[in-house]
Write a protein that binds this DNA or RNA. Structure first.
Lengths: 164, 164
DNA sequence: TATTGTTATACTCTATAACTATA
DNA sequence: TATAGTTATAGAGTATAACAATA
């Protein structure tokens, strides 16, 4: 029968570098949960970096793809970014209203629109993209360059190997 | 001066296993975006696996942590799962209504409640957890066991090395 | 005064159905 | 009939403020 009250708290060694797997249990062993936690960290950082430019993550993502793929149509853009066409509309509305992109109806098929960035859009994109890259790099200081490319590789494998 | 029109289309070698980086541009080089895409794949799979048990991902996550940490309080649970206490309430309401967990007020501090799973909750948890593990494993077939543990390791590094 | 659990609310992101104009 | 863009709307997930009970 222990009659002496322990004067030291039980949890002494809990402040280690790795997340406390003993505490959270089964969840921590799952890839999906770790994926979510890491995603949240980076998403928050990217969000904060894009905010000063009045851009959301989805908005700068669209802008970035249009920069690299001038003339892309909304349907193709939506498919590539895995977002619904209907949700893309409001993003493009925002970008067009702010004179960052142009929607030009195609002559060959007047149902489609060619998307291109304006000079203004290009400038804002470059600034925002640089800020975001920097913010992400700061959050990834714990990983070497090799680990970062390896990580991207592993993540792509998940997406690619999925039965689509 | 190139006067000969190329009869072959420019993009011939694009159908490789990796996502088309040339197409999506800068986005694909960022860890955050790849993280999101991979997360979506796994989250969808986990969601589908939990649905037959009438469980959402957040609900089974809570249940799982309570199983491994009987007596945990809502505040601590919320902190560990990084969700708001206010949002946790509705999840716990759901679990309690379905007789999967118990909320027991503590005598030492009547503001707090000890959370424990019921026998029923334990059973459902084990079934659902197994189904989810299987669903996740199926989506991770493209990765070896070593790659999976390495991936978790890298993801944890992102979370841990972040300035908190 | 501070903390725990709670309520109500708002905001973002995502998903679905239906419409229009073109093909 | 089918497709591209659009509209409206509903559902999740998340975030914030304020409250009652308790410390």
């Amino acid at each position: 029968m222990p009659s002496v009250k322990p004067t030291q708290p039980k949890k002494v060694l809990e402040a280690l570098s790795a997340p406390d797997t003993a505490f959270e249990g089964a969840i921590r062993g799952m890839v999906g949960y770790n994926l979510k936690r890491a995603y949240m960290v980076l998403h928050t950082a990217v969000q904060a970096a894009a905010a000063p430019f009045d851009l959301r993550v989805s908005t700068i993502s669209c802008l970035s793809v249009i920069v690299r793929n001038p003339g892309i149509t909304p349907s193709v853009l939506a498919e590539r970014l895995k977002i619904e066409r209907s949700n893309l509309v409001v993003i493009l509305d925002d970008l067009e209203t702010r004179d960052l992109i142009c929607r030009k109806q195609m002559k060959t098929d007047r149902r489609r629109y060619e998307l291109t960035v304006t000079v203004r859009g290009r400038r804002l994109h470059d600034l925002a993209a640089a800020a975001i890259r920097e913010a992400e790099a700061e959050r990834l200081r714990g990983l070497s360059a090799e680990e970062q490319t390896l990580l991207i590789d592993l993540l792509n494998k998940i997406e690619t190997s999925a039965v689509e």
